[in-house]
């Protein structure tokens, strides 16, 4: 009984399914990230944190 039960847990299907799921997601993200019309947007985003802020003029 125990051996039979344990033999059910080869789960090669799960490993295959996991790979396929990751592969599809990864390809999807790649296509989405490397859309050609997004260059300007990405450049803007890459510099988003660099914009100048007003000089602090108040002290606590």
């Amino acid at each position: 009984m125990k051996k039979e039960a344990l033999s059910l847990f080869g789960h090669g299907d799960l490993i295959l399914f996991s790979f396929l799921l990751f592969f599809v997601t990864f390809i999807g993200v790649l296509i989405w990230a490397f859309r050609k019309n997004q260059v300007k947007f990405y450049n803007q985003m890459a510099s988003m944190h660099l914009e100048k802020v007003k000089e602090p003029n108040h002290h606590e």
């Binding site: 993200v29 790649l30 990230a33 450049n43 890459a46 944190h49």
Partner: peptide, 16 residues
């Protein structure tokens, strides 16, 4: 990027 005052090298790479 803040400390170096530089943009992120590749925003696309950061998404992936």
């Amino acid at each position: 990027p803040k400390a170096a005052n530089r943009p992120v090298y590749s925003y696309r790479l950061s998404i992936v």
